[in-house]
């Protein structure tokens, strides 16, 4: 499933299912379990219906309004929040970026202090 048609088409996946939602919602809208289930089912059905390799099926998903298309990477929003005008991209920290500080404490308790290096090595748990 994909919300970025051009990237998926360029990678040439066997079967694609296009969801025309803003990035960060590939499998549905938040707190919409019925809509999420229907969208994921529609995506999986492409496994049965697509017979030509490389096909991307437009699932016909509609976000409801098109305002997000004017700033699809949220560049303006992030510039506004940070006060910056040039490179609005997030700084590429090389340390783990936790959602909450509790997550960091829990991970450090379990994995010790060498965690950044272990993450770089591709450990899996």
């Amino acid at each position: 499933m994909t919300s970025a048609w051009s990237i998926t088409a360029s990678a040439a996946v066997p079967r694609g299912a296009f969801v025309d939602f803003p990035l960060g919602h590939t499998t549905g809208k938040p707190h919409d379990p019925d809509g999420q289930r229907a969208l994921v089912e529609a995506g999986l059905r492409c496994l049965e219906t697509v017979t030509t390799p490389g096909t991307i099926v437009d699932l016909g998903a509609s976000w409801g309004d098109d305002a997000w298309r004017a700033d699809p990477m949220r560049t303006k929003v992030r510039n506004s929040a940070s006060g910056r005008t040039g490179d609005s991209r997030t700084e590429r920290h090389d340390t783990p970026q936790y959602q909450t500080d509790d997550d960091r404490l829990l991970a450090e308790e379990r994995h010790g202090s060498e965690i950044a290096c272990r993450a770089c090595a591709g450990f899996d748990d």
Binding site: T90, E91, R92, H93, D94, T95, P96, Q97, Y98, Q99, D102, D103, R104, L106, A107, R110, H111, I115, A116, R118, A119, C120, F123, D125
Partner: peptide, 9 residues
């Protein structure tokens, strides 16, 4: 939660 988060580099 409990796993090491991803880093950005």
């Amino acid at each position: 939660a409990g796993q090491i988060a991803f880093h950005f580099k």
